[in-house]
Design a protein around this nucleic acid. Sequence first.
RNA 1: GCCAGCGUAGCUUCAAUUGGCAGAGCACCGCAUUCGUAAUGCGGGGGUUAUCGGUUCGACUCCGAUCGCUGGCUCCA
Length: 670
Amino acid sequence: MLTVILPDGSRKQFDRPVSSFDVANEIGARLAKATVVAEVDGKMVDLHSPLPTAGEVNLRLLTKKDPEALAVMRHSAAHVMAQAVMRLYDGVQLAFGPTTGSGFYYDMRLEHPISEEDFPKIEAEMQKIVKADERFERRDVPRDEALALCRELKQDFKVEHIETGLADEKTLSFYRQGEFVDLCRGKHIPSTSHIGSAFKLLSVAGAYWKGDSDREQLQRLYATAFFDRAELDAHLEQLAEAKRRDHRVLGKQLELFTVSQLVGSGLILWLPKGAILRQTLEDYIKSELRKRGYEAVYTPNIGKVELYETSGHFPYYSDSQFPPIEMKDGERYLLKPMNCPHHIMIYQAKPRSYRDLPVRLAEFGTVYRFEQSGELSGMTRVRGFTQDDAHIFCTEEQVADEFRNCLEMTQTVLASLGMNDYRVRLGFRDPKSDKYVGGDAVWDRAEASLKAVCESMNLPDMSIEPGEAAFYGPKADFVVTDCIGREWQLGTVQLDYNLPSKERFGLEYIGADNHPHRPVMIHRAPLGSLERFVGVLIEHFAGAFPLWLAPEQVRVLTVSEKSDAYGREVEKLLADAGLRVTGDYRGAKLNAKIRDAQVQLIPYMFVVGERDRDNRTVAIRDRLEGDLKEPFPIDAAIAKLKEEIAAKTVRQVAAKQPAVAADRESQNEY
RNA sequence: GCCAGCGUAGCUUCAAUUGGCAGAGCACCGCAUUCGUAAUGCGGGGGUUAUCGGUUCGACUCCGAUCGCUGGCUCCA
């Protein structure tokens, strides 16, 4: 006797073997038809797989209204897409086909290079399979049988995967729909008709087998599916909208930055308006640094190769550096890829006492890294960038407080810009890799203290990720998502017991005991790189910056030439008050001037006509609120803006794109 | 670096029948208009169709190479 408990608490009893589908059918034929997948005691199961014959189970029947059901359907759609491709092209070898946060993909090998022109054909074939309403049938088989089956199907990747990735599995499951059979963990929808017609192939890309660039490159087909056409349309519209606020598009439109072929790829040229953004941010960071006891330093853009051999950067990252500049006498200089070795030289410029610590050396340091050409992207991935860098040299006892202060400063800075949507990633070493300097004991100590500090701070969405450490130490990265769903590391705080060590720079300070001791280093950059940060910031505000950051804060618009002289007077008063102001004195109509300023996302427009001239007032038009109606005396108008600037008020942040963001893979490929 | 796609005026707004005279809109410049909260009218300039080579009577269009960009993979101190 089986007792099934439904979410509403009601119970049903069965004395015959039943599946979740049978239970649904018992409740109602319509429910049975609408159910996509079931959850038994919290675990997802196929609708038609048998329930236990005795005892009690909690059963949830999931329909397309349940978000979990969507991922299951998309996974099934991935199978159907693979089936369609196999029908259209010969010799298809399947690799992995998981779902993602916003859709799914399938990696496969085939002779024919798939292009977007093939998408309609593939979609049409998928539609046929959906119409045929093929059932998804699961089969669990012992591993030797599974191997035999995959060999028979000539699926080399699946054979390899069973032999390596799934070496510990005793039985393996396959799913079949129609003629298509795939090694797969599941779960799946009952039959292909549940996919409906709201699916779309999105792009094709290369992807390495098992993510290994030394191995074969496969074709990856990206697609998405929804239960309703309207949801698909909304998703596609969101993608289009995200593209419109891409920092590369807005950067050009708003004249913030450019890249010149002649200067070189990945080298940002800051245009005057972009430079204002950057300067304003730098000034803000500088004021924070002063408050927090940092000292400013300046260091050159190159250093001898030996410096970076000692630090380890040169041997570890020689591939991603501009090659050394070689002098006639054999001296070699490197464009600096990091600021820390230079700052270490400053630390070492004189003997240090424990009384001096912590020493906090800050610099907006420009560094150069030769990123692979395929990686370059707008301002977010570049070959030359400036870090809001600083290095803290402190005693072991001071580490926790210093580290906490760095994290806290980063949080303060992000919060002041309305950037609340980020996650914190603790990058620890990968125990299997040998790319790290320093012994295990040092690393264990560093990771433990970093973890303890972070756990005491309630950081958002914190995760520990092995293999994400810097080669010299573990770190806490602040990771944000851009408008098309890509994650970027911005702020970072890194703990370093290695560069100070005897094997590297052998840093010392004299302790209270009059003996030399080894300091600990913290590397930190709240914004990370100015280039990347501004790129993300452009998308964060969709180009509509808060007043304190806006390159042009206010524009004076004259109603006609009759108010020209007064307009220029107002403009001068604003400029004298320290505001970034321009005036529009064209012969155009006011409506046209307003439209231009509005399109250029200017926070405030001061409209002046003859009435204003006579009353010494301005009519304020707020970018967000429109005409404020009541005219302001000039002084009051200036005071209003200065107040908003002083408070660094953030009035509006671009709407999030929920379907695009956080595209992390789910683990259902097997 | 790898896979795929795309390069037409300042513009990520785009057009140009099967290969047959490179064209609009916006922006820019000039003239007229003097206007009170999202585009005034008229006129004008602007192109070696990314670059180089090939096929052809003829190439924006077809083929090849190079450069650049885009999406993804790998990498990211």
